Amino acid sequence: MIPRSLKLALGAAASLALLLPVFLLAPGRSKPPMPARVLPPLAAPVTPPLRHVFDRSLFAAPVEAALPADAPQLTGIVGRLGSDAVALVRTAQGSSRSLAVGDSVDGWTLESLSIDAALFRRGGQQARVPLPAVDPELPAQ
């Protein structure tokens, strides 16, 4: 059995739930709409920022900067990147050497290695030397 006070509270809540929307939606109770503000059109920039990004093809290979003539030639990368990887390079004299990060050859210091390139620095110059492309037509040696 439900007590009388709870019945009265439930009845009042039900009445309020039914009458409140009718009261709020009654004609003449709504405010007139505010006039829309008209904003001036935005001025387009004379030259869009990052124009060079939009000018290049989406899937084109990045253009490599011309390497200095005396930069070491990367012939391979051996080992695990980040731990014991070394770069196999051909010097300007034609000899081959292996370099760990921090080693130097012909004045160029090996700064870092990635999966397909080595980054060398000499003074203010920086050269990203990519691995040579492999010709699929040539037999494996």
Rank of each mutant, 00 (worst) to 15 (best):
131 L>V: 06
56 R>E: 09
31 K>N: 09
19 L>A: 10
95 S>E: 06
31 K>A: 12
126 Q>L: 02
71 A>H: 00
13 A>G: 04
38 V>N: 11
31 K>V: 06
123 G>D: 13
51 R>G: 14
20 L>V: 15
33 P>T: 02
109 T>K: 01
77 I>R: 01
50 L>S: 13
106 D>N: 04
138 L>N: 04
70 D>A: 10
57 S>A: 15
88 L>W: 08
68 P>E: 01
30 S>C: 12
89 V>G: 14
111 E>Y: 02
50 L>N: 10
25 L>I: 04
119 L>H: 05
83 S>H: 11
13 A>H: 07
26 A>W: 13
29 R>E: 12
127 A>I: 00
139 P>K: 07
105 V>R: 02
60 A>P: 11
51 R>W: 13
88 L>N: 12
25 L>R: 00
76 G>A: 12
81 L>P: 07
133 A>T: 07
110 L>E: 04
9 A>K: 03
83 S>I: 15
35 P>R: 10
133 A>C: 00
80 R>G: 06
71 A>Q: 02
126 Q>C: 01
62 P>F: 14
39 L>K: 05
37 R>M: 07
76 G>T: 05
58 L>H: 03
90 R>D: 09
93 Q>M: 07
22 V>T: 09
28 G>A: 14
105 V>D: 11
30 S>A: 15
109 T>Q: 07
25 L>D: 05
70 D>R: 12
134 V>P: 03
94 G>M: 11
14 A>F: 06
19 L>M: 08
26 A>S: 14
55 D>C: 12
20 L>E: 12
101 V>K: 10
108 W>A: 01
40 P>D: 09
8 L>K: 08
96 S>Y: 05
104 S>W: 13
51 R>D: 15
45 P>M: 08
58 L>M: 15
1 M>K: 08
121 R>D: 07
77 I>C: 05
96 S>R: 06
87 A>V: 07
32 P>E: 09
108 W>P: 05
79 G>P: 09
78 V>A: 11
73 Q>S: 11
76 G>E: 10
120 F>S: 06
67 L>S: 04
127 A>P: 02
38 V>K: 13
41 P>A: 10
59 F>N: 12
27 P>K: 12
138 L>F: 10
35 P>L: 08
49 P>E: 07
6 L>I: 15
131 L>N: 02
43 A>K: 02
53 V>A: 13
100 A>F: 08
89 V>T: 06
135 D>Q: 15
101 V>H: 04
14 A>C: 06
14 A>W: 05
62 P>K: 13
62 P>E: 15
113 L>S: 02
137 E>F: 03
16 L>T: 06
126 Q>K: 02
86 V>L: 14
8 L>Y: 08
41 P>Q: 00
90 R>K: 15
23 F>W: 14
99 L>I: 13
58 L>A: 14
117 A>T: 06
81 L>C: 00
58 L>V: 08
31 K>L: 14
24 L>W: 05
126 Q>T: 04
48 P>I: 05
12 A>L: 00
130 P>G: 03
70 D>L: 13
51 R>Q: 15
22 V>Y: 04
21 P>L: 01
109 T>C: 00
5 S>Q: 05
113 L>V: 07
92 A>F: 11
132 P>L: 11
61 A>N: 07
46 V>I: 03
59 F>I: 09
72 P>G: 10
5 S>T: 01
